[in-house]
Design a protein around this nucleic acid. Structure first.
Length: 243
DNA sequence: GGGACGATGGAC
DNA sequence: TCCATCGTCCCC
């Protein structure tokens, strides 16, 4: 499936909606506000292009979609958008392709997994045009099926915490590096992404800065279902203490 | 080849 | 608030 088709299919889903982006004169930070129906999406980021903005659109339309793996089904409640080379300084693909980010530059609808802090795995869905290297980080969700299995994998934690955070979500799904580069849309890999059982409406969605990123820390490309208990807490980037 | 640091999570 | 722990990537 071509990348552009995948992105478009998300946009045409039941949870498609339009937003507009503005910069607050008071705080200087970016925020997103719902736009009138039928209004095309304005792109206000001076350092972003239209393709990059489409990643953010794809990310928020993924809320409510369900990711299935290893007998556990998770309804996505929190995601983040990351754009490609030379566009988004917070993206792994920002400086161009590397061995690690090869998958990001490949076909849409494939999983990009990466190892972080020497101990955790995180899961992205590649999207956008071929070579664009855009991806959506799956940050959190609600376990809607395979609860016992998820509990077994995550240990003794409250159910709301089973997939409350990108690394926790990966553990609950039981996936690792083996999923890297596999399709999440055609059933040939360990992961399968399916449309919402409970659609998410625009009024339910909040947007804000991405968690823990140092660069572009004010870009509101984190999207979550407002008030959902499975959404992870916001934490700003903390610079490493120098020895 | 060295070293700084991270799209985190869990213990205090 | 602190820090485990190691792959990645920049830089010398």
């Amino acid at each position: 499936m071509p990348k552009t088709t995948l992105a478009r299919s998300f946009g045409n889903s039941a949870c498609s909606f339009a937003w507009e982006w503005r910069q607050s004169a008071k705080s200087g930070g970016w925020f997103a506000a719902p736009a009138r129906a039928g209004l095309s999406e304005p792109v206000d980021f001076p350092w972003l292009d239209a393709a990059a903005a489409e990643v953010a659109h794809t990310a928020r339309t993924l809320l409510g979609w369900e990711i299935l793996a290893g007998g556990v089904r998770i309804r996505l409640t929190e995601v983040e958008a990351y754009a490609g080379t030379g566009v988004d300084p917070a993206s792994h693909a920002h400086r161009g392709p590397t061995p690690r980010t090869t998958v990001m530059f490949g076909p849409a609808g494939h999983a990009y997994t990466y190892f972080v802090f020497g101990m955790h795995w995180c899961l992205n869905v590649v999207c956008g045009a071929e070579g664009e290297a855009a991806a959506v980080l799956l940050r959190a969700g609600e376990v809607v099926d395979g609860l016992d299995l998820a509990r077994k994998r995550r240990g003794k934690v409250p159910d709301r915490d089973l997939a409350r955070g990108p690394a926790r979500l990966v553990v609950a799904l039981g996936v690792d590096a083996a999923a890297n580069g596999t399709s999440v849309v055609d059933g040939t890999g360990p992961l399968l992404l399916t449309p919402p059982t409970r659609p998410v409406t625009p009024s339910e969605v909040s947007a804000g800065p991405r968690v823990g990123v140092a660069a572009a820390h004010d870009v509101p490309w984190r999207f979550w279902i407002t008030g959902d208990p499975t959404v992870s807490p916001y934490r700003r980037h903390v610079p490493r203490r120098r020895s």
